[in-house]
Design a protein around this nucleic acid. Structure first.
Lengths: 335, 335
DNA sequence: GTGAAAGCGCTAACAG
DNA sequence: CTGTTAGCGCTTTCAC
């Protein structure tokens, strides 16, 4: 039943040449006469020969994997990212090895070390618990690592959207619609993404000559529940607001729910803008105005860049554009 | 910079023993004196030695991967599944190699063949384009394959929920609430899941002595857009209904949207029950009553079973329970 | 242009 | 109980 796998030896025997010749034609390394090329190729095809990736990797000293370390596998956002990565990995001979550790630093540390050591020739890391210095110490061979969601460094290329710009666009849109009291709900204050989005929010306020009130910023998880809690917090504080800029769509979803419970209508009583433009936003009631993040493209870019790095090719990383998608969650305020 | 990787030879040199001795202690194969065990273990620890998985795999003839082939990486459902798989793979020395091919048969065929040939010692396949016979022909070594979303066969174990029961529960709940005209929106008629859920729907009708009207079943994609279209179709047909059993939650989401556009209130005008209980359902307005599918557990079970098979261990696959989660999308009808 | 042979890092007989 | 040795399947000098 379990037949032996076809090896290069079988091909060489069938073709009547040496294994090194077979290797040469299959890898297009070294000179080969046209005739023997034909013969070998036919033999390989006939036998449906597939080189053993282990043996090849052993001698070439490469694992053959593209590692991806993301915080979560589930959830509307990271799935899209993976989809993008997969789309390009599929076109190469690399395999996609994934790992997720819930953004817990120690576990990400271990997972990253393991990927680098045993599974992959380079990894894409979406997160910011592990800083470049952390990565350096578990990357003795200096394998390429591309970062998402962190500021770029000399050591690591980085594909990221312009968070500040996105936040600016969102906030400015609210301002253009006559809102003066704009709250901002966001995630953990130390996260890079949190800080930069706050920057954009402030900048829009500032540009419009509106005062910045720290009381209007409220932090929780980047999750539905987080958004739910943030509204409660905001209501509890008794700060005045006619609009909320939500640092991600999942928070906006939770906010909708909480607002409903407070009998606040959207957008009549409070206007909302989200961030990410996950699939689901268009099915909300009312459909959520949001900042589109081309997350699938980002995954694809990251993968392309990583593979280029692994193969020692140059590749420029294009800017990732961000754009406002207007739907119905913002009310134009009369003044 | 790029230091040489530590090999078993380095360890043997440091420990002052032969490489086979090192191999023995590290793999707990063969007898070893307590003293040398100590020495070797210390040397390995000191050098932070990690065996090269390629070399080991080459000799043991195993790739070291657990393959997963699912239709999509993005989306609320399959992410949860992957999460479950990852949770158990993480605890083993296998790596998780993923592939997704949008449920396109030819591509899944190629992806499966590739996984089996180059990446994995077994694969978990969630889908039903590839039947056991298709898999057999690209699985010459008879590697284990566990199936999800297909009827079990002798050749392949299968973790699946009782779709028929779930559909029955959903429909019966509607009936218990006084509904007599219950439509059913679902996916592609040839899909196994479609057929079994229709069975459950029919059975509930039958048990209640209600007539089955084929006009009330409408097919489209298992997607938000699919649900949207289904409502349009239903309205277009002019069939009478006070409730819809949606074969998955994503369809229910689209249905909400379409129903809103027809100015139908949920649940006052039409009641809905979904299937899957994806995260998002509880944030819908009104929150969707649905059939809970423990998708993360299913991923975990599949992974456990696959690894047991790879390692030649026995393992019984427990039943996956399904349950009705009552929220607010169903109205109790007076009669 | 082609073949022989060494060796990648590891495990598994086989001796001792 | 431990060391020597022969591969696993492939690529890559090095001869010819």
């Amino acid at each position: 039943m379990s037949k032996r796998r076809i090896t290069i030896k079988d091909v060489s025997a069938l073709a009547g040449v040496s294994v090194s010749t077979v290797s040469r034609v299959l890898n297009a390394s070294g000179p080969i006469s046209e005739d023997t090329r034909k013969v070998v190729e036919e033999a390989a095809a006939q036998l449906k020969y597939q080189p053993n990736p282990l043996a090849r990797g052993l001698v070439k000293n490469q694992l053959g994997g593209v590692g991806v370390l993301i915080p979560w596998l589930a959830g509307p956002y990271f799935g899209g990212f993976l989809e993008g990565v997969q789309g390009v990995v599929r076109t190469t001979s690399f395999r996609l090895v994934v790992s997720s550790e819930e953004a817990i630093k120690e576990r990400e540390h271990a997972a990253m070390a393991y990927l680098l050591e045993n599974d992959a020739d380079g990894v894409i890391y979406y997160g910011d618990s592990l800083r470049p210095s952390d990565i350096a110490e578990i990357n003795p061979f200096g394998k390429p690592v591309v970062l998402i969601g962190q500021p770029a460094t000399d050591a690591h290329p980085c594909v990221s959207i312009n968070d500040e710009m996105g936040a600016f666009l969102a906030t400015r849109y609210l301002i253009e619609n006559g809102h003066r009291h704009i709250a901002h709900m966001t995630g953990h204050p130390d996260a890079h993404v949190t800080r930069t989005r706050i920057l954009g929010y402030k900048k829009a306020l500032e540009q419009a000559g509106l005062p910045f009130d720290p009381e209007r910023i409220v932090h929780y998880h980047y999750s539905e529940e987080g958004g739910y809690r943030c509204v409660q917090e905001l209501m509890g504080r008794g700060v005045e607001f006619t609009a909320i800029f939500c640092a991600n769509d999942q928070m906006a979803i939770g906010a909708y729910q909480s607002l409903r419970e407070f009998n606040k209508r959207i957008p009549e009583d409070v206007s909302l803008v989200g961030f990410d433009d996950i699939m689901f936003t268009r099915y909300m009631d009312p459909p959520l105005t949001s900042i589109r993040v081309p997350i699938v493209d980002m995954g694809a870019q990251a993968a392309r860049k990583l593979i280029a790095l692994i193969e020692g090719r140059e590749m420029a990383l294009p800017d990732v554009p961000t754009e406002l998608v207007v739907r119905q969650s913002v009310r134009r305020l009369p003044h």
